[in-house]
Amino acid sequence: ENVVSAPMPGKVLRVLVRVGDRVRVGQGLLVLEAMKMENEIPSPRDGVVKRILVKEGEIVDTGQPKIELG
């Protein structure tokens, strides 16, 4: 899985990584606000952040790609 998608609709509060960052499985990639709760979205695997496809403040839909890992 190279693309991390939104598990639920919500607002991107914070992006916790930058392009080029090495990430580990379970590491937080971003914080999504859904139903007035903050949810940290974890990396599904070890890898390197290739692209960030969302911006802080953006509203995302379920299944929308957010971060691409290499």
Rank of each mutant, 00 (worst) to 15 (best):
S43N: 01
D21K: 02
R24A: 09
T62A: 15
K11P: 01
E38K: 10
R14C: 10
I59S: 10
G70P: 02
G70K: 12
K11W: 07
N39S: 11
D61Y: 15
L13D: 02
P42E: 08
L30M: 10
L16K: 05
R22I: 13
R24Y: 12
A34P: 01
E56I: 13
D21L: 07
V23F: 02
L29I: 06
I52Q: 02
E56Y: 06
V54T: 05
V4H: 04
S5P: 07
K50C: 14
L32R: 00
G47Y: 02
V4K: 04
V60C: 09
M37W: 08
K55Y: 11
V15W: 08
E1Y: 14
P9I: 09
P42N: 10
L16D: 02
A6T: 06
P44T: 07
L53C: 10
M35F: 14
M37V: 12
L16T: 04
L29W: 01
K50R: 12
A6Q: 04
G63R: 07
Q64C: 08
Q64T: 11
K11N: 03
K11R: 12
Q64M: 08
M35R: 11
G26F: 05
S43D: 02
Q27V: 05
V17E: 01
E33V: 11
E40T: 15
N2L: 13
I59K: 09
A34F: 14
S5G: 08
A6R: 03
V19R: 06
E38V: 12
I67A: 02
S43V: 03
T62H: 09
E33H: 09
G63Q: 06
A6G: 06
K36V: 06
E68C: 14
R18Q: 12
V25C: 12
M37Y: 08
G70N: 11
L53R: 04
K36I: 06
V15C: 06
G47W: 04
G28W: 09
P9N: 09
R14Q: 07
G57K: 03
K50Y: 11
K36G: 15
R24T: 12
V60E: 03
Q27Y: 04
I59R: 11
V48C: 12
R14M: 07
R18I: 09
K50S: 10
E33Y: 15
V12T: 02
K11A: 04
R45N: 07
V3H: 09
D21Q: 14
G26Y: 05
V12C: 06
G70W: 15
N39D: 05
V19W: 03
I59W: 15
M8F: 15
L53A: 03
R51D: 06
E68H: 11
V23R: 00
I52L: 06
A34D: 06
D61P: 06
P44Y: 04
P65C: 07
I67E: 01
R45E: 05
E58N: 05
S5A: 11
P42D: 05
G70F: 15
I67S: 02
I52K: 01
L29P: 00
E1H: 13
E56D: 08
K55F: 11
V25E: 12
P42L: 14
I41G: 02
R51W: 07
L69E: 02
V31D: 00
L13Q: 04
R51P: 03
L30E: 00
L53M: 12
R51H: 09
E40K: 08
N39E: 10
